[in-house]
């Protein structure tokens, strides 16, 4: 017991300042929300598409050139192929509430993450219980979701927990592209959660299949967390904003976005 106390004193208090007191500590090469220059030509786009590991992450439609964060693995190769025209910003607040909001357009206005207006989601601000379903992915999303439970991130202080049973859950936290052999297990797990319930799609695979074929989702996700895998800071910020909570990151949004774009 004494040894444990001494070790605890030596290790110190190690819960990070994010998200209550400071923004996250991101690596220098962190690739966050992409930005497409208005001057992106079809030639540029073709060059970027040629090196993109994912089909249809980049494209062109009536609205102009786009990059779909729901498919993107954030590898950065398109930015290498089109220097100056495609770049990855340090914006880590990537969680959105609709599939369309994951599509980044060329030359669009500065980004502000959406605020939660759904009262049912806001009602969960004191206690938000998640049941994780791993369905055919590579387990990186699962590992970086698990990390939020460690004392470095301490998701529990916000009343957010991964629970053992869907019966106890407010939301199903889905990772993986939903392989054929997990299709039925996912449906049954989702059905076992009591109403009202939400589906959260975390990672490119869960959102769009990513590199793989996409299975059928049991419902339309209410929260999309893009990434391959999403950074824990992205996930935690998204979960808090989804339940209508303000964090340092959202209250200091303007200050933060100015420091991010520099």
């Amino acid at each position: 017991m004494l040894k444990a106390l001494i070790a605890r004193l030596r290790q110190g208090f190690r819960t990070g300042a994010f998200p209550t007191k400071a923004g996250p500590n991101l690596p220098p090469d962190f690739r966050g929300r992409p930005a497409l220059d208005a001057g992106l030509t079809t030639d540029d786009l073709a060059r970027a598409k040629a090196v993109c590991p994912v089909a249809d992450a980049l494209g062109h439609d009536a609205g102009g050139a786009f990059l779909d964060m729901g498919r993107c693995t954030f590898c950065g190769r398109c930015a290498e192929a089109c220097p100056g025209k495609i770049r990855f910003t340090k914006e880590y607040r990537l969680g959105v509430f609709t599939r369309e909001a994951l599509v980044v357009r060329a030359g669009e206005a500065p980004y502000e993450p959406p605020r939660q207006t759904n009262p049912e989601a806001c009602a969960l601000r004191q206690s938000f219980q998640l049941r994780e379903v791993s369905a055919g992915g590579c387990a990186a999303c699962e590992l970086d979701a698990n990390v939020l439970g460690t004392l470095a991130w301490d998701m529990g202080r916000f009343g957010i927990r991964f629970v053992a049973s869907p019966r106890h859950a407010d939301a199903i936290y889905l990772t993986g592209p939903v392989s054929p052999n997990m299709q039925r297990a996912l449906e049954k797990t989702y059905a076992a959660a009591p109403e009202p319930k939400f589906l959260i799609a975390a990672g490119a695979c869960a959102i769009s299949g990513g590199l793989y074929a996409h299975g059928t989702l049991p419902a339309v996700p209410a929260l999309f967390i893009p990434g391959c895998p999403p950074h824990p800071a992205t996930t935690l910020e998204a979960l808090l904003r989804f339940t209508g909570r303000e964090t340092f990151a959202t209250t200091n949004a303007s200050r933060l976005s100015s420091s991010l774009s520099s």
């Binding site: 070790a7 290790q11 190690r14 500590n25 690596p27 220098p28 090469d29 962190f30 690739r31 693995t73 954030f74 590898c75 950065g76 190769r77 990186a140 590992l143 970086d144 990390v147 439970g149 460690t150 004392l151 470095a152 391959c228 895998p229 950074h231």
Partner: peptide, 25 residues
């Protein structure tokens, strides 16, 4: 508790090299 956090320290060192905690890309 300690190891859960320390594992993250090592992942973050990997991310220092390449920007991704799992050494992707």
């Amino acid at each position: 508790s300690f190891c859960g956090r320390i594992r993250g320290d090592y992942l973050n060192l990997t991310a220092l090299v390449c920007g991704n905690r799992f050494g992707r890309n």
